[in-house]
Structure formats: structure tokens, C-alpha cells
Write a protein that binds this DNA or RNA. Sequence first.
DNA 1: TTGTACGCGTTATCAG
DNA 2: CTGATAACGCGTACAA
Lengths: 353, 353
Amino acid sequence: MAAEAPPIQRRKARRNAAAVSGKVTLQQVAAAAGVSSATVSRILNGTAIVSDDKRAAVFEAIEQLGYVPNPVARGLAGGRTLSIGVVTQAIDSPFYSGALRGIEDTLSAAGYSPLFVSGQWNATHEARCIETLRSRRVDGIIVLTGRLSNAALAATARELPVVVTGRKLKASGLFALDFDNFEGARLATHHLLALGHRRIAFISGDLKHLDGSERLRGYRSALAAAGVRLEPVMELPGDFTEASGLAAVERLIDSREPFTALFAANDQMAFGAALALHRRRMRVPDDVSLVGFDDLAGSVYSVPPLTTVHHPVYELGQLAAESMLQLLAGEKPALELPPPRLVVRETTRQLRT
Amino acid sequence: MAAEAPPIQRRKARRNAAAVSGKVTLQQVAAAAGVSSATVSRILNGTAIVSDDKRAAVFEAIEQLGYVPNPVARGLAGGRTLSIGVVTQAIDSPFYSGALRGIEDTLSAAGYSPLFVSGQWNATHEARCIETLRSRRVDGIIVLTGRLSNAALAATARELPVVVTGRKLKASGLFALDFDNFEGARLATHHLLALGHRRIAFISGDLKHLDGSERLRGYRSALAAAGVRLEPVMELPGDFTEASGLAAVERLIDSREPFTALFAANDQMAFGAALALHRRRMRVPDDVSLVGFDDLAGSVYSVPPLTTVHHPVYELGQLAAESMLQLLAGEKPALELPPPRLVVRETTRQLRT
DNA sequence: TTGTACGCGTTATCAG
DNA sequence: CTGATAACGCGTACAA
């Protein structure tokens, strides 16, 4: 036993050094295991059946040497980089960052790495982002609510798998994951109607996006179903930012148009609206009821906590990533997001009569 | 002229096809330009001086063919992947996402791509993340407030450039970008003292992190300087989350210890604190003054807008990325974050006497 | 089942 | 200044 000590120590030392420097090659593993490099590769990728003894020898060698495959070389040789491009609009938006985490969690669990790029709400920039991702040879691209045209998306889907959220679209090699924004907005508006409100103003998001237009449609639909007349003055334009929500409410108040409730197309605008109401000395929910959309992490802790429509952003990211994995595996994804759900907190109350 | 039309068209067509498929190789460019591939490489990387005519011919060919270099092959051959690993704790945290944007902006402007991974406040997981990044052959690693030991960080800095934020540390190949949390906390506490407050409670963050402990130190220092006795009961433990801020304030109120002001070690805990006060029917700032730390994007729109210490997170990301670029260029970074700055908004007021 | 040999697209090292 | 040519580390036809 004692005689064997030195070799063992040496092996251990080498292993640590290797694990840190990451410089052990597949070739070295093959040599140590007494097989060809092709066999090692086959074992690693499950490309072919290998005899059990060689298999064991290879794993032994991998363990001893602390071998870690080099994804760069893999990418060059095999064409697969095990990385997925993710096009987001603003990486620091409270809305998207939740989705990004969902994507990262499920992608990394599958051995893939996400490559995030920000499109910055600009179609041209977005196209450039996709070019960058393609030049980096990503295996697929996930687009979170892009500005890119459906045609452009379908075109890149012909080259590599694409998963897109926030729009409806069918094309080969592409999967669209959509959330029922219409129903969510209907739910929110219905809630206010059920509380007795009739003068319900709506702060819309960017109508160029499906999210924005669908939420407006849901609002209108609910009002119509309740027999409440649609009034253009009650539809305030916004762009999904807090500032636009604040501005919209100030304009509404200045117009002296009576209203008892406010539905903002997203939580951020609802926050802006709440501040505007506060500035004008109108209390929430005593004077005005307020509903948001998205259920951001911070909405639970706003004062008072915001009633809103839950949008499962984390799950959105997870499902987008899972769909991509399925696309990569040659399967046809059919995942669906859970239906929207109203979360009643403390910014809404029965209309005083 | 007319005779030349066909070739031009053909060239155009080929160029488009190439730009989309991204399959034109450096070899093809070399062939088209009538030079060797080495020359093309040299021109692209500025590795050596090349005659003007060949240079022009190569650029002409690149343009015609729509050549885009392949970073994967580059990574294999040259060892540089033009990608930087970024270890963050929670990609969806409002605090870190701002920094991530700063990093992405300046990195991509320099032709680098960031590779984000989440350490999830877990040293073991963080170490694994770094292994992943190294296996992907990133050219450097930026660590945002990690849990990793200084020793571990210094060790990886021996292998490749490292930039770390949120701690003080000197080592070769490593640059630490620190923010003056002590001074920021001192500023905030001083502000409350200047308003006449004496019973100022402090909700601390995770004291295992330098951010947390330094802010506590700043709070104590300001009190001491004003001759106010430090009372352990006024120092409430927290962990940087909204929930912990809420719990801390509820405990404080239940203890019936009198207090007129509250300083939370970050904005998220301040939000939690504000909600707790609201629940207990204590008004901000009329009954209690409240100060946060970080100046998150949402703090401007909280109701009422939060007085807080501005922490330049976006710049933090920018500077971290710039430092990394300098490290990569063989320079010695000496960038510094701007000093902390108190942003007085509407949650603090003169103590009523 | 296994090994040989070539190719992936660049960079780097030599000569010239 | 420029051109062959050898790496870089791995996947994969092809052959055995």
C-alpha cells in the first residue's frame, strides 16, 4: 500500500491542476484510458454503443484527469454550441428580468447557456442582435416580445429554431408562446364593474404590441358586455412606463372628466398613476380604485398593495426555454401558459354610493 | 455598362445569401481577394502591416461576399472568445439588473458578449458557475458581489482577468470596484439627525456582505458623531428583501420601543417597512420618516417617493465592464465610482416637537 | 464495436 | 510584407 502512495498523490495533484486550468483534452483521456479519441467522443455523446469495459476505463480516466469538454471546440466540430440566444428588450425591466431567470434556470439545467442581448425596442437594433447571435453560432433563438416583423422572424426560423413570446404566429421551426392578455384585461375590468364602478378609465400600453392592443380590447369587451358606453376620453394613451401612467392620470384629472376607477395596462403605469393620484390628493382605494396588470414582484409591497392580473413571467421564461429544448430535440412544442388570474389586493373597493 | 449588369446582380444575390447564412469563410475571402488566408486574418486583427492594395482587395471581397468572422473558430484558434462571464446573484433582482444593462452596453460596444450566470447567493453554486464560464473559455469574469471567498477569487484571477464589485480586494489580475457604502449610510443617518430625529431605527442587510456591514457601520458612526447613544434594540436584522423589512418593522412596533425615523439598508427593505407602517396606521413621513438605500428605478414612483441614497448601479456595470476591457488590454484599471449622494424626496420631514 | 483520418474556420509560427 | 502550414479540441464518415 505504502508503495502506491506517491502515484496516487501525483494523480490527485494532476487532477486538481487540470480541473482548474481546464486544459485536459479528450485526446489525453483517450490515451489514459487506452482507447481512441473517437471512442471517448462516442461515450460522451452517446453516439454509438461502446463496450462496458472501455466505457468504465474512460470514465475512470475522465475522473482522474478532471476532464471537462471544451464547448468551443465542440461548436466548431459539431456545429452545436449548446448556447441559446435570447433577445430581450430591456434586460433591466422588472417584467423581463423574471422571464430571463426562468429561461436561465431551465436552460442551464439542460446544459445550455443563454446568451442575452437587448433589442432596446428597436427593430433595426434587434435585427443586428440576431445577426450577432447567429455569428456566435447559437443553436436557437428565443425572442421576448420583439419589434421584429413576423416575416423576419419566420425567415430566421428557416435557419434555426425560434421561440417567440407575446404574439401569435405559426411557421415551421418556430413556436409562439402567447399569454391571454385579452382575458386578463377582461377579468380586471370585470372586477371593477362588479364593484359597482362605471366610470372606468384605461391607461393603455404601446398599442403597436399585441400585449397593448389585446389588453385594450379586453377592457372594451368587458365594458360592452356590461352595457357601459365606451368613451374615447376614458382611454388614455401610455407606453408601459411609470412616467406615462403618471402623465395620463394628470391629464385625466385636468380634463375634469369624472372617474371612479382606473385600469392600467401594466403595473408600472399603475404605480405612476398611484403617484399622480397621491399628488392630487385622491386616495386609493377610497376615492379611486386602481388595477394593474402583470403582478410584478414589487406589486405586493406597494402601498397599498396593488390589485392586478397575475402574469406568470417566470413560467413564461421556463416554458419558452422548454419549448426551445423540444424544438432542438426535433419535437413539436405545444406548451401553454396558465390562464390569467386576478389577484385582488388593496387598491380596489366597492363604489360608494 | 449594360454588359456588366449580370455579374453585379449575381454578386449581390450571393452577398445576401451569405449574409443570412453566415457561411462565408475567411478562406473564400482570401481566394476572392487573391491573397492568402493569413493575410486576411492579419488585416482583420491588425496583427501586422499589410500593403494598401491587398488591404483594399480584401475589404472589397469581404463586402462582396458579406463575410462575417466566426467567433467559435476564433475562440478555438486564438484562445480568445470575445466573451466575458458575468456572475450575478439573482438576474431578476431590481438592483443587479441595472448593473447588467451597464455591462451589456459597454461590453457589446467593444465587440464582446456577456455570458450571464446566477450564483443564487450560494458559494458552491457560484464556484460551479465559474467553472461553467471557464469551460466556455470566456476571456474574463466579472463577479457582482459574490459569496465566494477572496482567496477563491484571487485564485481564479491567476488564470484569467477578474473584476469584482462590492468588496475591497487587491490581487494581481484582479480589480475590485467598490462603492462607499459607509459614507452613504452616514449621509442618510445624518439627514435624519439634521431633521431633529434621535430615535432612529436601522434595518440592516445581510451582514455577511460588505455592503451590509459597511452600511451598519455608517449608521453607527453618524449617531456616535451626533452624540446619540447606540441602542441594540434599534438595530433590526434584515436580509435585503422586502419581506424582511416588513417583519423588522412589525417586530419593532410590537416591542413598543419609541422611534420617529427608520433607515433601511436598501430600498427593497424600505418598501417592506413602508407597508408595515401602513398596516399599523403610521403615516410616512408625518409619523415616521423613512430613508432607503440604492435609489432603485421604482423608488421615484413609490407613494410617497422614497428619500434614499443614490447608488449608481448602471454606472457600476459600465465601470466594471470598462475595467475588464482595460485588464484585457494589459492596462491597470483605476476607475472609481462616484461618491454616494443623498436624494431627498418625500418620506422624510422635520421631527415635530 | 472500434480506430483512422479528415474537417470545422481561425490564428500563429515559421520561412521567405 | 506575405504565404505555407501547423495547431486549436472535438465530431464523424469511413474503414476494419
